[in-house]
């Protein structure tokens, strides 16, 4: 039993580490198609990572140890996060280690380290990026927590494995609250992954960038780790959305066939999710930074409404 959990855990971690750059590549490809550009290959992200790993690190004179440690910390956090989210199986050895709230804490930990790293060199863009990242963060984090709260009120648990099990094996019922929090979650993940209405992952336009401004001073293997970590973050968020709102197909007990099936279903769902993301990014325009509070405030409001609606309409169920 425990051996199975270990196996599923390792499998999930490896799948996350390997598939995450591909998901990013897939989103970029879809987006290029939709925008009538010729698309980069699906494996482009791997080539970029490999190129960056081979390059030398150029470190600013003023960079401190914190700056050099941050990529490793952020990468570890994101790897742990993608190991915690139950995507392939709900029997994982890490699943009791962190529940939904701790997962939010984990994302916050990574965010704080990368923001501190952005301030470390002491350039104008770096600190601007850190400030904006923290700004987006403090708006997005409560909304994300609220989404989890609604899910945990439905399943009477904050443990992710239990939430997914409950939601996956309930008889079909329409939960308006879950629909609301699903939308809220989507808005939050757009913001957290530096996606279009809030930030543009491809821009280096000085005044609009957030995430890119923060990591401007990174190069070589450090940059590779950070890029990989953002791929992992996107992967973890996508898996989280899938696990919370489309959980069917998750393997439960020890069953290699179920696990294989779960992997196949996961890949299909991720492909669909990536396509949706590209669609959203193509259809919407980037907001001014100070429209972000409204965007995320709406997400927060939706999540709170979801909780209230759950208490009124669904609590008796």
């Amino acid at each position: 039993m425990n051996f199975y959990a270990l196996f599923a855990q390792l499998l999930e971690l490896i799948v996350a580490l390997i598939l995450a750059p591909m998901l990013t590549g897939w989103v970029n490809q879809c987006r290029a198609w939709m925008q009538n550009r010729s698309a980069p290959p699906l494996l482009q992200t791997y080539y970029t990572l490999s190129k960056l790993f081979h390059k030398d690190v150029l470190l600013a004179h003023n960079a401190s140890t914190l700056f050099r440690a941050a990529p490793y910390i952020v990468f570890s956090c994101m790897a742990l996060a993608s190991a915690i989210v139950p995507t392939l199986s709900t029997e994982l050895i890490f699943s009791p280690a962190a529940d939904a709230i701790a997962l939010v804490g984990l994302f916050a930990l990574a965010r704080i380290f990368i923001s501190l790293a952005g301030m470390d060199v002491g350039t104008s863009f770096g600190s601007l990026g850190s400030r904006r990242e923290m700004f987006i963060g403090f708006l997005a984090e409560p909304a994300l927590l609220m989404v989890f709260f609604t899910a945990s009120l439905i399943s009477h648990s904050t443990s992710l494995a239990t939430i997914v099990e409950t939601l996956a094996h309930k008889e079909f019922a329409i939960y308006p609250s879950l629909a609301f929090s699903g939308i809220a979650f989507m808005m939050v993940s757009l913001a957290e992954n530096a996606r279009v209405p809030i930030d543009n992952p491809t821009t280096h336009l000085e005044l609009t960038m957030i995430h890119e401004a923060m990591i401007l001073e990174y190069s070589g293997r450090h940059l590779a780790l950070i890029e990989w970590a953002s791929c992992l973050k996107l992967f973890a968020y996508s898996c989280l959305g899938i696990a919370l709102f489309f959980p069917f197909g998750v393997a439960q007990a020890f069953d290699p066939i179920a696990l294989t099936l779960a992997s196949a279903i996961l890949v299909a769902k991720l492909a669909l999710g990536g396509f949706t993301l590209a669609l959203i990014e193509t259809l919407s325009a980037k907001m001014r930074v100070f429209r972000a509070p409204e965007f995320l405030g709406t997400a927060f409001l939706l999540a709170v409404l979801a909780m209230l609606v759950h208490l009124l309409l669904e609590a008796g169920r």
């Binding site: 690190v57 150029l58 350039t123 280096h204």
Partner: peptide
């Protein structure tokens, strides 16, 4: 990362776009 690639690093002035 050290093992698979290398640990080369040099100090330069900050880039800042």
């Amino acid at each position: 990362v050290r093992r698979r690639y290398h640990g080369r690093m040099s100090r330069v002035p900050a880039w800042d776009c």
